[in-house]
């Protein structure tokens, strides 16, 4: 006889492991990738799914309790704000003259705003 609580626990743990794994990958990417723009790829995309996975795991654990509803809200706000933050960091970096890494093949933005 399998109880509902057990299934809930399994789903919640699974989502938590997936989320934590993706956050870990994001940190590895932050160290391994060569320049600020490539690092932003790692932190925004992977950070989003990682944090969202952790939030979903909370929801799976407690259901629609106050803390679960808050978790959903936080997840949605992360989904909305992470791209905006990445965009502002990338733009500020480029305008301050942070160059692209030497593997880069093309830079059409630099041609436009060359100061």
């Amino acid at each position: 006889m399998i109880e509902i609580g057990l299934i809930q626990d399994i789903i919640s743990t699974f989502l938590l492991v997936v989320g934590a794994f993706f956050v870990f990958l994001g940190m590895v990417g932050l160290i391994r990738l060569p320049d600020v723009y490539n690092r932003l790829h790692a932190t925004t995309k992977i950070g989003t799914l990682g944090a969202f996975g952790v939030m979903l795991s909370i929801v799976a654990k407690v259901g629609l309790e106050p803390i679960g509803v808050k978790a959903i809200t936080v997840g949605l706000f992360i989904l909305l704000t992470a791209p905006v933050a990445a965009h502002m960091i990338g733009r500020a970096a480029h305008r301050h003259g942070v160059g692209l890494c030497k593997e880069s093949v093309i830079d059409e933005y630099g041609k436009e705003y060359n100061k």
Partner: peptide, 26 residues
């Protein structure tokens, strides 16, 4: 697309040898 993006970036990060060709395009 978000799921695909995560798997793709995860693959790039976990490659033993980094071979990427980044760039900014209009």
């Amino acid at each position: 697309e978000i799921i695909k993006a995560n798997i793709m970036v995860a693959k790039i990060i976990l490659q033993p040898k980094m071979d990427i060709k980044p760039g900014i395009i209009a």
